[in-house]
Write a protein that binds this DNA or RNA. Structure first.
Length: 893
DNA sequence: CCTCTGGAAGGAAGT
DNA sequence: GCACTTCCTTCCAGA
């Protein structure tokens, strides 16, 4: 079905009119939704403060979601913006039912135009559809918290457009956090997920049963819940989605509450391989996002209606079902600091509960008092949304994970007891330290569970951090909820050298069904079992601004099965080698078997395999943690430019490791790095950052080593930076930058990292000026204005959304030279400031790539730089591939 | 008695 | 629609 979506914001003066073709490129639209075959067009008219978020994902296709008239704060919307959706072709299903919910929305049958009245800004959609799913890992781009929030705030606060800014700009917000670590902390932060926020006041929260304390949900048996009023079901990909009739679904029942952090707002799109490919082309998304941004996103509440939700079995949905709420003990209980309300999301709703979610504002089972204020936008100081990519270092500050967590940690379900704190490889616990902070005032280290796929880092919808207490826990902590994401706050004390041992963080697994039912949730939980620990610290500056730093850990596999069966490549001794191959490469990792196979693959942009070659494995030398492989010759040994391919370890059907990067070098090109079989030479390796394993752990990083230059890059290599890989020349001729998504992000991430301090994870930094525009900020350079560096995420629209009225749209941003990656490169210590890359153009990408290399790398790198081709951006949905393909198509079979 | 863990049963979901 | 495979979630039991 083709849809034309027209958004009218009557309330406000339309500032923008956008017509966005939703191109094929948009995986969500095009691919994911089978229904949508042609490119839908979205016309957006008006933008105004309250933004509306729009997702281009299924929901859109589906049609819509109905916003409520209520504003987040409960106030009636001034005017109702309207969304008209025109289906050019018929929708497969009658999904589009005509109904009148809350009067806000009216849907019409297929082919007809659907007019949605957007109450206020409330309505919102997550543009991020892009984020594919996490599934594969977690791919969704946005968490509610993030973009939406940002949008939300921005609008609300004209001055501070984006939350982000605020962090930088707004002293108070930050200050509060800083000053009072425990205090509302994050919660207070503006970021509050729209979902929460909006509703809070009004309906939802109360409705939400916040589950109090018991972290353990009732037994599953309860189930029932489910969907309450699902009108129609649309199949998206493999999953079925239903539209909820109930206006307040989200609010009231929302799965969100379920504990998952993922913001409602951000709908995630599960990505299938196909989708992924589509995703590659994010421009479209960007455009959409921009449009959406213009509209604004506030809307948590809105989401609820109209938005297709993954459905449960029919049985589950009975509206009438009573809502059971269980208190999620932990959350609430802690310190009492957090009121139940605070945890709406966290509260885990049992399935039953979810039903409640659908019910309108179920009565609050618990006597909780009013929703906390943090919900209110006003309260929220503005801290960067959780899905924003932040640099690990800025100016003198550097947040580093000195001891990485183990690559596997079995998460516990609510129905289980805790499975303990995440441990470090060494047997201890992860250690995080903030360098460069000389003040005497303690800071608060925030920790939340983020995604680990190749997409932008964001809160993981299916996992939450779980506070561990007990005699064995030496680190104090407390939980706060932000945008449905549970955050553990840990004091960073000067007396401890601003170093914290993370022995108080466990990982809670939320039921896939619960999360998938959330409105706006597009990610799928199946096989989306990798996470990262994401650490953040907000440092107040004398000038009133706040510097926010973020460091994410290596990926952690949280499923029982995966931990036991899937091979994991943590390190590879060689990142690149001449096309003729023949060199032995040592892979270190886990779960290697004598029968393990190593397959080199070259993929086209569309994901198709152009070339596959099984490498010779020295079976005699195989160890569970080491594999000796002979690099196979590339199909074309006359390549003129470095060519990036992938390889993976396979233990059998559907038991493949993540894709690892490998670069074939032109024979003529001097080998940049030939690593001895011994351990990686981190530096040397760094030449082609991409090579570093993007997906799992930073093998190279020596947790203990404070500085890993490579790390920065490596970090980039990690999921967060998969894009880096993209940076590498892709074999496919076609690889138009545009098609590949995100390089920008990737680059940015890499760039930012300072050689000295490399934080593994996302490093991107974008700062916002007071006007709300993102600007690269260099702490050092006051001129820039905003200390806070925020990073836009890759192509994901959501990220783009952030800026509100002033909003800066990545797309637009591109033009600005200042933000060009190149600038970053210039930065001596890349770490300090990552250039802000808003939009990327191929050229930029290249530049970025180049700069990146230049920035942090050893001279050896120069070689590579010399080869332009390397610049080609190619990004692959590796994980996705794997995940989905695995299931079904094992490619090479 | 409670928490932490490893293992696995049973069923749902996907092929 | 069926059979089979995988994966998810819940249970159980031991330390």
């Amino acid at each position: 079905c083709k849809w034309a979506v027209i958004l009218y914001a009557f309330s406000y003066t339309p500032n923008v009119t956008l017509s966005l073709p939703l191109g094929m490129g948009n995986p969500c639209l095009a691919t994911q939704y089978h229904n949508l075959q042609s490119s839908p067009v979205i016309s957006v008219t008006s933008c105004h403060q309250t933004g509306y978020n729009f997702q281009n994902d299924n929901h859109v296709a589906a049609g819509y979601y109905l916003p409520h008239g209520l504003r987040p704060n409960g106030a009636p919307a001034p005017e109702s913006p309207r969304i008209e959706i025109t289906a050019y072709t018929q929708c497969p299903e009658d999904q589009v039912e005509e109904r009148n919910c809350d009067d806000h929305i009216i849907k019409r049958g297929v082919n007809s135009i659907v007019t949605l009245t957007l109450p206020n800004a409330d309505g919102y959609r997550d543009p991020n559809c892009l984020s594919p799913a996490s599934s594969i890992s977690s791919r969704s781009c946005n968490s509610e918290a993030s973009s939406y929030e940002s949008g939300f705030y921005n609008y609300d606060n004209s001055l501070q457009n984006s939350p982000w800014q605020s962090p930088c700009v707004s002293p108070r917000g930050s200050s509060s956090l800083l000053s009072c670590p425990h205090a509302s902390g994050p919660a207070a932060s503006p970021n509050i997920s729209p979902s929460t926020s909006p509703q809070i006041g009004a309906v939802a929260e109360e409705g939400w049963p916040a589950q109090p304390r018991d972290s353990r949900p009732n037994s599953p048996s309860l189930s029932g819940g489910g969907g309450c009023n699902n009108i129609s079901i649309a199949c998206v990909g493999k999953r079925k989605y239903s539209f909820n009739d109930t206006p307040y679904q989200q609010t009231s029942c929302s799965p969100h509450q379920s504990a998952t952090p993922s913001p409602h707002g951000s709908p995630r799109v599960s990505v299938t391989d196909e989708n992924w490919l589509a995703n590659a082309n994010q421009y479209t998304n960007s455009a959409i996002v921009a449009a959406i941004n213009a509209l604004t996103t506030d809307g948590v509440v809105d989401m609820g209606e109209g938005i297709p939700v993954k459905t449960r079995k029919m049985v589950d949905h009975s509206p009438s079902m009573s809502l059971k709420v269980e208190p999620s003990g932990e959350e609430v209980s802690h310190e009492g600091e957090i009121s139940p309300e605070d945890y709406p999301s966290r509260l885990v709703l049992k399935k039953e509960n979810y039903c409640g979610g659908f019910l309108e504002v179920p009565q609050h089972p618990y006597p909780w008092s009013k929703p906390k204020q943090y919900l209110s936008p006003t309260n929220t100081p503005s801290l960067p949304a959780l899905d924003w990519q932040l640099p690990s270092s800025s100016g003198p500050y550097s947040l580093q994970i000195e001891l990485q967590p183990k690559s596997h940690h079995r998460a516990h379900y609510e129905t289980e007891g805790s499975r303990g704190a995440v441990k470090a490889l060494s047997g201890g616990h992860p250690v995080v330290q903030l360098y460069g902070y000389m003040e005497s005032e303690p800071l608060t280290l925030q920790l939340f569970i983020g995604t680990a796929d190749d997409r932008l880092l964001r809160p993981h919808a299916f996992y939450q951090v779980h506070r561990i207490t007990g005699k064995t826990v030496s680190t104090a902590s407390h939980e706060v909820l932000q945008s449905n994401t549970k955050i553990l706050e840990i004091p960073l004390l000067p007396e401890n050298n601003m170093r914290a041992i993370i022995d108080c963080a466990g990982i809670l697994k939320l039921r896939n069904s619960d999360i998938e039912l959330r409105k706006g949730e597009t990610d799928i939980g199946r096989k989306n079992t990798r996470v990262r620990l994401v650490f953040r610290v907000h440092i107040n500056q004398p000038n009133g601004r706040t510097v926010s730093l973020q460091a994410s850990s290596n990926p952690i596999e949280c499923s029982q099965r995966s931990a036991q069966e899937l091979p994991l490549v943590e390190k590879q001794s060689v990142d690149s080698y001449p096309a003729n191959g023949g060199k032995m490469m040592v892979l270190s990792g886990l779960n290697f078997l004598p029968d393990s196979k190593v397959v080199f693959v070259e993929k086209a942009q569309d994901g198709h395999h152009l070339w596959e070659m099984e490498a010779k494995v020295d079976k005699d030398s195989v160890k569970s943690n080491a594999l000796f492989v002979e690099i196979p010759p590339y199909r074309n040994q006359r390549i003129s430019n470095p060519l990036q391919v992938n390889f993976y370890v396979c233990n059998g059907k559907r038991k493949r490791s993540q894709y690892q990067n490998f670069t074939y070098l032109p024979p003529t090109v001097p080998m940049i790095k030939t690593e001895p079989s011994d351990e990686y030479d981190s530096l040397g390796t760094s030449v082609l950052p991409m090579h570093s394993k993007p997906y799992f752990g930073h093998p190279r990083l020596n947790p203990i080593m404070p500085v890993a230059e490579h790390d920065a890059c490596l970090a980039g290599a990690y999921p967060p930076c998969p894009s880096l890989n993209a940076a590498i020349p892709s074999p496919s001729p076609n690889s138009s930058p545009t098609l590949h998504d995100l390089s920008p992000v990737t680059f940015s991430k890499c760039l930012p990292n300072s050689p000295t301090h490399a934080a593994p994870s996302s490093q991107m930094v974008t700062t916002f000026q007071e006007n709300g525009r993102p600007v690269l900020t260099h702490p050092a350079s006051p001129d820039h204005g905003s200390p806070l560096a925020m990073l836009q995420t890759q192509g994901s629209p959501s990220h783009l959304n952030s800026p509100g009225p002033h909003g800066f749209h990545p797309v637009y941003a591109n033009s600005s030279p200042s933000s060009s990656p190149a600038s970053h490169a210039s930065t001596p210590s890349g770490s300090a400031e990552s250039p802000f890359i808003q939009a990327y153009s191929p050229s930029q990408a290249q530049a970025a790539a180049t700069s990146a290399q230049a920035g942090g790398n050893s001279p050896s790198l120069l070689h590579e730089e010399s080869s332009p081709p390397a610049i080609t951006v190619k990004q692959e949905p590796q994980e996705l591939d794997q995940m989905y393909l695995d299931d079904g198509e094992f490619p090479q079979s």
